[in-house]
């Protein structure tokens, strides 16, 4: 397996020259002016930039909620700009999770139902397996005892933890988080971030966080800076670990359809800051 093959196998998202122009009456506003970057499987990347720089638009495009005006982006080897609405909806349901600044839980439903919603809405009913997974996720985010509470009865921090669990319900390959801690106090923000970090390490899910919080961004593995619709600094491509055994394990597990259960391999692949072995590997490379 050469370096090129490894890069292909570990690549999750490949964005090439993505542009977005909004037309309002006769006025055109170019929000994204040619964004190019990649995400590897299992990494946690922070996206920084001033308000109005195009972060939210880019997240909407990456989340397949909005189509780019031009450019291409591939996820899991699939060109997403060519898919129709129905295909995008299905892809989004199965491969992408969203976490918003204002949690956006459905107020008429319990914590468990909120987490279950992406799954039950897809299969058309609440399955026993779905409920078990939703309960497991709520347990994981520390809300086992709040499972049957209406969303309106939860605190801000609890709501955001439910939103994190909901984003993970369908075992997505990518979680897009738009200012996930922006509406929380420092303590809750730290807790939410640590939770996402732990889950990312445990499951190998890729996280792309849009944030203004430099302290949190520093704790991510990589940062991308966007200004005026272009990537201005930071590492726009991931540093691919070259530990063959760990990669093989991660790739095999991902191919088997259980990326969230990959622990050791995925960590070895993406946890470049925390593992001496991988740092040595990187230095050798």
């Amino acid at each position: 397996m050469n370096a090129m093959d490894l890069a292909t196998l570990t690549s999750l998202l490949d964005v090439r020259d993505v542009r977005k122009v909004f037309v309002d009456n006769e006025f055109e506003t170019q929000v994204l002016k040619g964004i190019t970057f990649s995400l590897a499987r299992g990494e946690m990347v922070a996206m920084l930039g001033p308000s109005g720089s195009g972060k939210s638009t880019l997240l909407s495009i990456l989340g397949t909620l909005m189509k780019p005006t031009s450019g291409s982006f591939q996820m899991l080897g699939k060109e997403l700009t060519t898919l129709n609405e129905k295909e995008l909806s299905q892809f989004r349901n199965q491969q992408i999770g969203f976490i918003f600044q204002y949690h956006h839980l459905l107020p008429d439903f319990t914590a468990l139902e909120n987490v279950l919603f992406p799954h039950a809405g897809r299969v058309g009913r609440e399955t026993r397996e779905g409920r078990e997974r939703a309960a497991m996720l709520l347990d994981r985010v520390g809300l086992k005892d709040r499972m049957n509470y209406r969303a309106t009865r939860l605190s801000g921090g609890q709501k955001q933890r439910v939103a994190i669990a909901r984003a993970l319900m369908n075992q997505p390959a990518l979680v897009l988080a738009d200012e996930p801690t922006g509406n929380l106090d420092r303590e809750n923000a730290d807790q939410a971030f640590e939770l996402m970090q732990e889950i990312q390490r445990e499951t190998g899910t890729t996280f792309l966080l849009s944030t203004h919080d430099r302290e949190l961004a520093e704790r991510c593995e990589r940062r991308i800076y966007i200004r005026n619709g272009v990537v201005v600094e930071g590492e726009s491509t991931p540093v691919v670990a070259t530990k063959p055994a760990a990669l093989a394990e991660a790739v095999a597990a991902t191919a088997a359809g259980t990326p969230w259960r990959v622990i050791g391999g995925a960590n070895a692949m993406v946890d470049r800051t925390g593992s001496t072995d991988t740092n040595e590997d990187r230095r050798r490379a």
């Binding site: 129905k86 299905q90 919603f117």
Partner: peptide
């Protein structure tokens, strides 16, 4: 509207 938007964001189909 916001709730429907959220549902659509996690891939709930138009038909649903």
């Amino acid at each position: 509207r916001p709730e429907i938007g959220i549902m659509r964001s996690f891939g709930i189909s138009e038909n649903f």
